[in-house]
């Protein structure tokens, strides 16, 4: 079936199976940053933004994003680099497999909340699992990123 949606700001029309999940479609388009970690709606590695909202691409059919805006990490390079730097600085990033999902979720968090509390940050990130590093260091990195975003917003 034909599905038309906006992928990273450009409209695309694709022919997909009715039961094809978005992660598979995106990877088929060469967007290998979308990683299917668990395929169980659990780990968050496959997160993309659908109309700006973090969503697990392994669990949404491509047919369901008809007419919507899909954003992958390729479209938020600047933000993702900064987030990756802070994650690296804080030792929150070892193998990097989960980082793409984290970058998109942290970016969405920074747009949705002006001054999130620790609890709100945790609640927002709970759907993204990391198996090698500690969540404390991630928390520090996220806070540094949010502070940086805020500093630039003020200017």
């Amino acid at each position: 079936m034909e599905v038309k949606f906006v992928l990273n700001r450009s409209e695309i029309v694709l022919n997909v199976r009715p039961d094809e999940y978005l992660a598979e479609t995106l990877r088929g388009q060469g967007i290998l940053s979308v990683r299917v970690g668990c395929d169980e709606s659990n780990c968050g590695s496959c997160t993309v933004l659908i109309d700006g909202k973090p969503s697990m691409s392994c669990s949404v059919l491509t047919a369901q994003v008809e007419g919507k805006h899909v954003t992958t990490v390729e479209d938020i390079q600047k933000e993702a680099n900064l987030i990756a730097d802070f994650f690296g600085d804080e030792g929150a990033d070892q193998c990097g497999f989960c980082l793409v999902g984290f970058a998109l979720v942290v970016h969405a968090l920074s747009l949705e909340y002006e001054n999130p509390t620790d609890e709100e940050i945790k609640n927002y990130l709970v759907g993204n699992l990391c198996r090698c590093s500690g969540y404390n260091s991630q928390m520090l990195a996220v806070k540094r990123y949010l502070a940086e975003v805020k500093k630039h917003a003020k200017k």
Binding site: S41, N42, G44, T47, I50, K53, P54, S55, M56, S59, V60, G101, V105, A108, N123, Y124, L125, V126, G127, N128
Partner: peptide
């Protein structure tokens, strides 16, 4: 509702 999985699940 807020205790069901993560935000990226609840958006769907």
């Amino acid at each position: 509702a807020g205790e069901i999985m993560g935000v990226n699940f609840r958006n769907l």
